[in-house]
Amino acid sequence: MSAASAVAAQVVTSTLASGRSKDRDLRSILFLGALWLSLFFGVIVLVALIVDTAIKGSGRFDKELVTNYASIIFPETTGFKAGIFGSIWLMVCTAILAIPLGVMAATYLEEFADTNRWWNRVIEINLQNLAAVPSIVYGLLAVAVVAIVGFDEKGVLIGGAVALALLILPVIIITTREAIRAVPQDIRQASYGLGATTWQTTWRQVLPSAVPGIATGTILGLSRAIGEAAPLIIVGLGVSVLSVPEPGIAGLSDSATSLPNQIYNLANQSRPELATAASAAIILLLVMILGMNAIAILIRNKFTRSW
């Protein structure tokens, strides 16, 4: 080895193999620490909250929680049957109302609307804004809609479903549009090139390819709706409901309540048994939401395609 190359090797050793990393100087470590702190702050508070609630409610993870109606006479066996079934029914009705409307609106905007027209642009901008409107406003809107449609009674299932459908409609439209936009232009061109109409191209190629995105967006929207209490209170959904809506069309005008409504009501009660039950119900609600999100993830993983 020549002298020159020996020197070069020495330099390399002293600079490259110095035994410490430039990523480990004080500033980098401080910065990293700040990042970790932010992460942990969010996660820890959340975990603490859930654990605390779970401990508080631990006495009531029993069958009666699901099978009994609310009762202040027997607070130790009070149940959330009306709320659970009410919430499930609300979700079904909300989905039936919101999914077709949302998907069709999004399809129109993506595949048919001429974006040069000012009214289409106005609709687009307003959709973004609608997604940020407080949920309580949708409750007020639903009261008006339900009154117009002709249900005079307050607190019926359909009223709540309309409120929640209005609430998640912008979310569904926005996610569906993104899913439709993600379908490659190639697919449309191939279809048009064979002589297909816009309708056939949309219905047979674009929408089927967009299903995973639409489904995940919709379920995420629904899992937001299932946790809402405020718009349902405005619509007048009661808390002391001791029945479950009848299955079918007739059930639409039955009085109903929802799990968040019942929880909200019990959280204000002074009896410790009721507070325990409320904590248990909160965990139940969380499990339902997690379940829905899990379904969304499953659908996405099962149907996602790489183009």
Binding site: D186, Q189, A190, S191, G193, L194
Partner: peptide, 14 residues
């Protein structure tokens, strides 16, 4: 387009 078909640059099967 039913009379005049088209094949594209990038293979684009459905």
């Amino acid at each position: 387009r039913q009379h005049i078909g088209m094949v594209f640059q990038k293979p684009n099967p459905f």
